[in-house]
Amino acid sequence: MAAFIVRRLLAAVILLVVVSMMTFAIFFLVPRLAGMNSDQLALRYVGRGATAESIEATKERLHLDDPLPVQYGRFVQGIVVGDEFNYGPEVVKCPPPCFGYSFRNSQPVTALLIDRIPVTASLAFGAAILWLIGGVSVGVLSALRRGSVFDRAAMSTALAGVSLPIYFTGLLSLALFAYHWKLWPNGVNYVPFTTNPLDWAYNLILPWVTLAFLYAALYARLTRASMLETMNEDYIRTARAKGLRERTVVVRHGMRASLTPILTIFGLDVGLLLGGAVLTESTFSLPGLGQLVVDAVFGNDLPIVLGVVMVASVFVILANLIVDVLYATLDPRVRL
């Protein structure tokens, strides 16, 4: 087990390096390929009110004229051991993981990220619990009663669910529940859990349900397919033949085998959402990581975009790692 975890950890580190290279490439290589020179690149980092001197200074500060591998090394160095920024009279220390400073409001990006993570995490975990319970139970019931009215209704709803974009269902639910029926007369406003847990939950119900509906539809379809396949296996027949109760056959033999692949996808989805439920946050104006990155893209605030993309990748990689370990414990067929 220990060797297995070490191996997965190593793979995770390699994956992180690849992610950092891709992130770096997006911001420093792609614009060059698209024909921008280092002056134009520097201009983006200066933001508004650029002068020839400030562009030159930024170019100097970000070492934009260095060869690309050197620039990449510096970028990684900032994340791993921190960085120092020379702002004329004073030198600002940026402790690791350093993603630099927003040039909109000069705040350290790391602090901004830490500020936004709870919002996204509240949204992602709340919705994840709902969709896992809802999607899986509907999927299992549909598979067990294949062809029944319930199965047909559930699968039609699920098909509609996967065809509906979240920003449409979100707006619809806002228009109906928040505005028309006045259940949330002031719309959805995020309240931190530590301030008031009840307000926190009350304000998140609509985003949770909307987000969970989309995923539940997907999970119901996946679970049903997986369950149908499992219930046709020989060992299910054997379990029935040896006289086990149907309940035991379904739960102990059927569900255990058919839900392990669902778990993999679940881990991935939660990891992805933790990196910013971009569309949901935009629709409900929740101040999470996704909203942060969208605002930063428009404000040309590249250090923030860079930071969010890196953090999101870390979440995905961590989620994968946890799922791999869980998978190995849950599924006796997995060889370590």
Partner: peptide, 24 residues
Amino acid sequence: DVFLAFPLLLFAIALAGVIPSEAF
């Protein structure tokens, strides 16, 4: 595997955002 385990939407937003208005 790497592609499937990526925050693709974020990457896409970032990429779509950094492309200048005239290129290629």
